[in-house]
């Protein structure tokens, strides 16, 4: 029976404003390995926790360009090289009639990349996370706002950190173990 390692401390707040206040205060005290779990996006939390903006836009741009180039290549190669089909004296390949399919392929690939990229960057899908062990964690998808301080934080202390969180107005602050 191995001793389970500590994942971190979870503090529960009742409003987004309280959560933001506490997050800012913790960051001022030098905590860096923090996260917040909320039922809806709380604005300002990224700045308070030092989360950088998502690079998803670039991913979508690259995938969109690939879709655009791929569709043009497909229409040119199939129509003008692999199986030339003369219809009504029209050119075998021209940009104008290729626009609709090129546009659709651009959108399709960019959308795929956005969704796949969002899931990948979030590490989803995943079956298990230590926070799911926490008794009160279920409420963060309902009406609670949780601030998580990970045990990997250099300033983390198993007794002092929860106490500090309680001082900052947390209704509840508990330790969560890593689990198996």
């Amino acid at each position: 029976m191995s001793e389970s390692r500590l994942y971190g401390a979870v503090a529960e707040f009742q409003t987004p404003e309280d959560l933001l206040e506490a997050a800012r205060a913790m960051r001022q005290r030098g905590f860096t390995h923090m996260d917040a779990c909320t039922p809806f996006p709380v604005h300002g939390i990224n700045e308070a926790l030092g989360i950088r903006r998502s690079p998803l836009g670039w991913l979508a741009l690259v995938a969109g360009c690939a879709g655009c180039a791929g569709a043009l290549l497909l229409q040119w190669w199939t129509g003008a090289v692999s199986y030339p089909l003369a219809i009504g004296g029209k050119p075998l390949f021209a940009f104008e009639p290729s626009i609709p399919i090129t546009f659709e392929a651009t959108v399709l690939l960019a959308a795929f990349a956005t969704v796949a990229g969002m899931l990948a960057l979030n590490g989803l899908p995943r079956l298990y996370h230590p926070l799911f062990q926490h008794q009160r964690f279920q409420r963060v998808t309902d009406d609670a706002f949780a601030l998580v301080v990970e045990a990997s934080d250099p300033k983390f202390h198993a007794t002092e950190t929860p106490a500090l969180l309680r001082n900052l107005g947390a209704a509840d602050a508990q330790l969560v173990e890593e689990g198996d």
């Binding site: 996260d35 917040a36 779990c37 996006p41 979030n122 998808t141």
Partner: peptide
């Protein structure tokens, strides 16, 4: 899919 409403999740999610 294991969603837990993390601020990092929401960051990418809102962008997506």
């Amino acid at each position: 899919l294991g969603w837990r409403g993390s601020a990092r999740h929401w960051n990418h999610y809102e962008k997506a």
